[in-house]
Nucleic acid binder design. Structure first.
Length: 588
RNA sequence: GCCCCCGUAGCUCAGCUGGAUAGAGCAAUCCCCUCCUAAGGGAUCGGUCGCAGGUUCGAAUCCUGCCGGGGGCGCCA
């Protein structure tokens, strides 16, 4: 409909140009928008305002000429000029209501499109370090990424969902150490647990216990051997990093490569399995779990550095290898290979992103926590240095979520180990509420997650509010059966012009807007607009429900027309909730 | 110090690529079940869009400066 009006305007403009009213070179992008106020019709355009100046005419006069030049169209009932020179279009009732048939015919495909034209897009999200269970902060990135990916798929992109597994590096060594030390405790060895090691009880419970059951005391050493010549920990006036690093070396030495690797991998796989389970229960699946270690094994990290070196974008200083990031828009140069010969996380990321592009994705989307924003310029700098088109990379930053219970902020810090896990959140409020609340706000907005509200079974809870619209339609249909009425879709189609109530008109307009909304929501990576849409749709439906009976006894044609409308509403609610990963219950 | 995000009703937030009297929800006050689930609906109250300039036919929206809140600035990941 929007496109139709657009082309009507374009041909109107064309004839004005031919008639010499408008200068030849006038080629504006015609903007057609849905009106907010129904007094302004269904659609409006501001072309007359935009063209007033080049045409040397006042906007209202120009609008008048344009309206006269518009071709007739049965779908347009009326055209008006309003305000400073807006042109308002009133769509005929029958043309508008045809959306109901469209929804019924397309079913769950309604709202989908092919603007993506099958182009390949990679979405990398969550990618939390496998050192412990996912917490509520990761949950938001997970929910957001899942919806962004689903939306892109809905509008025709070929989407590849990927989780980057940081299975190499020091933090994983600390995990391995933590597992081994907890195991030693299970063996009865007594020593002070390092302040900088991972203290979560999942380590003892899920990992060290398994190790102990498998190998008995075979991997154990006495406390004296463990702690000999280890520098003091922070509480004892030492440096916690040096303390932990020394212990990691000790573990490697005592266990030997094979056993150390065994402990390391045990920790990794147990934690990763937990993460996978959590995400699956949250309705998320990935096409690929991409290993950082694999990147190193395939030599890609060194290849990346080499390529930068060939291009003259790296130099040596203080024994380390630096990338000239500052020449490509970053604040300063960045180390890619440390003095000790180890490559940095950044070097891995360069290699990873090179690989993403080489795998043939036209667009690559990274979804990160907002605390990583400082990292964006350096990655972009690397892309540019490598001669990659920067526009292919999108980094979407998601702000953290704060939980509120009883009006109080739930204290959380990774350091103190008092973080709430995603699993706990899910168990407390349920998957639907969690998914819905997480994407309710603009991603760059801090999210206040009200646990009491998410749990409440009341009209205040926006999740139930939307779901209830779906359940209510189901309930009406059940009621219809109970009353012995038969629904006739065709008869409803015949009575489509009977839907003249203002509630019906608004609902029809709302349904029409859905495909555009999905498209915009997808292309702009803004799931929250879908949430708002569903709330409005549900609201209009509930209002309609209270204002008019659907199961009209004495007028089968009107009844079936109304039933077609509300079944279409149900379909769109279901499609929308489906995109959000939220269920659409048949009864509540 | 530099960088990013945010500042809209008492609270939580929308506001599309600049557009017509700035919108929801919650809270507050009042009203609606002999009627398809009241997990619902309606009405009222509530705003100097942080402040000051600028751009233009038109600014909550774009630009600059300032104020306030949050986050980030490692040879960590």
């Amino acid at each position: 409909m929007k496109e139709k009006i657009q082309s009507l305007i374009e041909s109107g403009l064309e004839s004005l140009v031919e008639g010499g009213v408008l200068p030849e070179e006038t080629r504006p992008q015609v903007q057609v928008t849905r009106t907010k106020d129904k007094a302004h019709g269904d659609f409006a355009t501001n072309v007359a305002l935009a063209l007033a100046k080049p045409a040397g005419m006042n906007p209202r006069e120009l609008a008048g000429r344009l309206v006269e030049a518009l071709p007739e169209d049965p779908a347009i009932a009326r055209v008006e000029i309003a305000g400073p020179g807006f042109i308002n279009f009133f769509v005929s009732q029958a043309a508008a209501a045809s959306v109901i048939d469209q929804v019924l015919a397309q079913g769950e495909r309604f709202g989908r499109s092919d603007v993506g034209a099958g182009r390949r897009v990679q979405v990398e999200f969550v990618s939390a370090n496998p050192t412990g269970p996912l917490h509520v902060g990761h949950g938001r990135g997970a929910a957001y990424g899942a919806v962004v990916a689903d939306l892109l798929e809905a509008v025709g992109f070929d989407v590849h969902r990927e989780y980057y597994v940081n299975d190499a590096g020091r933090q994983m060594d600390i995990l391995a150490l933590s597992v081994w030390l907890r195991y030693l405790e299970l063996c009865g060895v007594e020593f002070p647990f390092p302040s900088n090691a991972y203290k979560g009880d999942y380590i003892t419970r899920d990992i060290a216990r398994v190790l102990f059951d498998e190998v008995g005391e075979e991997y154990a050493v006495p406390a004296a051997e463990l702690m000999a010549d280890i520098p003091a920990d922070e509480p004892d006036g030492g440096d916690k990093e040096a303390h932990v690093d020394a212990l990691i070396e000790r573990a490697r030495h005592v266990l030997g490569d094979v056993r150390y690797r065994y402990v390391f991998d045990l920790g990794l796989t147990r934690v990763l399995d937990g993460i996978r389970d959590d995400l699956e229960a949250f309705g998320l699946t990935f096409d690929e779990w991409y290993s950082e270690r694999g990147l190193a094994d395939r030599g890609l990290i060194n290849q990346g550095i080499e390529r930068l070196r060939e291009l003259g974008h790296v130099y040596e200083q203080d024994g380390a290898l630096w990338f000239r990031a500052s020449e490509f828009g970053d604040d300063k140069d960045r180390v890619v290979q440390r003095e000790n010969g180890q490559t940095t996380y950044f070097a891995s990321d360069i290699a990873y992103h090179m690989d993403k592009l080489e795998r043939g994705f036209e667009r690559v989307i990274d979804i990160w926590g907002a605390d990583h924003h400082g990292y964006v310029p350096r990655l972009r700098a690397a892309m540019r240095a490598l001669g990659e088109a920067e526009e292919r990379l999108d980094v979407l930053l998601v702000q953290f979520a704060a939980l509120y219970r009883g009006g109080e902020k739930v204290p959380m810090s990774t350091r103190s180990g008092s973080f709430v896990t995603l699993r706990e959140l899910r168990e407390e409020v349920g998957e639907d509420a969690a998914r819905f609340f997480y994407v309710m706000r603009k991603s760059e907005q801090h999210l206040d997650f009200d646990l009491d509200l998410a749990k409440s079974q009341s009209n205040d809870n926006p999740v139930y509010y939307v779901q209830y619209a779906h359940a209510r339609v189901c309930s009406v249909l059940r009621q219809m059966d109970e009353r012995g009425m038969a629904r006739d879709v065709e008869r409803g189609r015949g009575g489509i012009t009977r839907l003249t109530e203002s509630h019906e008109q608004s609902l029809i307009k709302r349904l029409q807007a859905f495909p555009e909304l999905v498209e915009r929501s997808a292309l702009r990576h803004e799931p929250h607009t879908l949430v708002h849409y569903l709330r409005e749709l549900a609201n209009e439906f509930h209002t309609y429900y209270n204002a008019h009976p659907f199961l009209v006894e004495e007028d089968a044609e009107l009844r079936d027309a109304r039933l077609n409308l509300i079944v279409a509403v149900r379909q769109v609610v279901a499609n929308g909730l489906g995109l959000l990963g939220v269920s659409a219950p048949e009864r509540m």
